[in-house]
């Protein structure tokens, strides 16, 4: 091994770095081609009546997507109604209470709770579907319905909500808590009046992430929501979210143009979700947190 020339080593670096550039560009290209393709094929199909008329079934997938928009909205709201209080509560407990509870009864309980959250986060969505189908659809006789689907969906997004809540709370400076406690406030008063208000943007991010998950999830709702394309009239109605509609259009009616159009709307929703998250976290930064 003799002394290596700096020029040769620079050349190796240039080669390696260009490969890295290529891999990043390729990734962006892949994204652009998926999004671009669906948008280009889908957007020409869009018009006002597409959004205001329900699907009419049929082999070419006639009609629009109005009832699927309604079903998606209902499902998002119902899921959040279940998952938000539970998830935020669990997050608050794990950050604000768990540390100080070191007695013999609580310690294992807290360990189990943490294990539960971690496990839940790794469970593949079809398992939630399977579980939801067995428990809510069959055993509890909710049938294929918004109720079954939103309960299964709540289980699905619970870990997201818990984790983002935990992170938001951990980011609240300890001095806030000390300040409030030193004034004689109880722990709960401190949480409610000082900690939670400063964690609102972070928790909101978690909610929006959950909304994104529900909008894009298909497998869980395929086995819990049924597939009726009529507008749901009660929480026991079957229904179709937009994502589910794309699946049915592609797999059953083979109406790819309509599927692309619905897909374009879905992508637009996801972009909106990402923008919302960015906006919230920008406020978070501008608000002068610890970042």
């Amino acid at each position: 091994m003799s002394s290596r020339s700096p020029a040769g080593r620079k050349l190796v670096q240039a080669g390696a770095f260009s490969l890295l550039w290529v891999s990043a560009l390729l990734s962006v290209l892949v994204l652009a081609s998926v999004v671009g393709y669906v948008m280009i094929k889908g957007i020409p199909e869009l018009n006002l009546s597409f959004f205001t008329t329900p699907p009419r079934g049929g082999l070419s997938g006639e009609g629009g997507i109005s009832s699927t928009i309604v079903a998606t909205l209902y499902l998002v709201v119902m899921t959040l109604l279940v998952a938000a209080p539970l998830g935020i509560g669990a997050g608050v407990f794990l950050v604000e209470y768990a540390e100080s509870m070191q007695n013999r009864l609580m310690k294992p309980l807290i360990r189990i709770a943490r294990f539960g959250v971690e496990t839940l986060a790794g469970v593949p969505s079809i398992i939630f579907g399977l579980f939801g189908y067995a428990l809510f659809v069959t055993l509890m006789h909710f049938g294929f319905s918004l109720l079954s689907a939103s309960l299964a969906g709540a289980c699905l997004i619970l870990p997201v909500v818990i984790r983002t809540t935990e992170e938001a709370l951990k980011a609240v400076p300890q001095s806030y808590r000390e300040g409030s406690l030193s004034l004689g406030a109880t722990r709960w008063e401190t949480i409610r009046r000082v900690v939670l208000p400063s964690a609102v943007p972070g928790i909101t991010t978690g909610m929006i992430l959950g909304v994104g998950r529900i909008i894009s999830e298909t497998a869980v709702f395929y086995v819990t929501l049924g597939g009726s394309y009529r507008t749901p009239t009660s929480i026991l109605s079957s229904g179709r979210t937009m994502a589910l509609h794309v699946f049915y259009l592609a797999m059953e009616t083979r109406a790819f143009e309509k599927a692309m159009a619905t897909g374009a709307v879905l992508i637009a929703c996801i972009i909106a979700v990402n923008l919302a998250i960015n906006a919230v976290s920008r406020r978070l930064t501008a608000g002068g947190g610890r970042w």
Binding site: I88, G89, F93, A98, L109, L120
Partner: peptide, 19 residues
């Protein structure tokens, strides 16, 4: 409130168990 919050934390455990 501590108990209520503990309850919600245990819900996720219950769900895992149930699943």
């Amino acid at each position: 409130m501590g108990l209520v919050l503990l309850g919600s934390a245990l819900v996720s455990v219950t769900i895992v168990l149930l699943i």
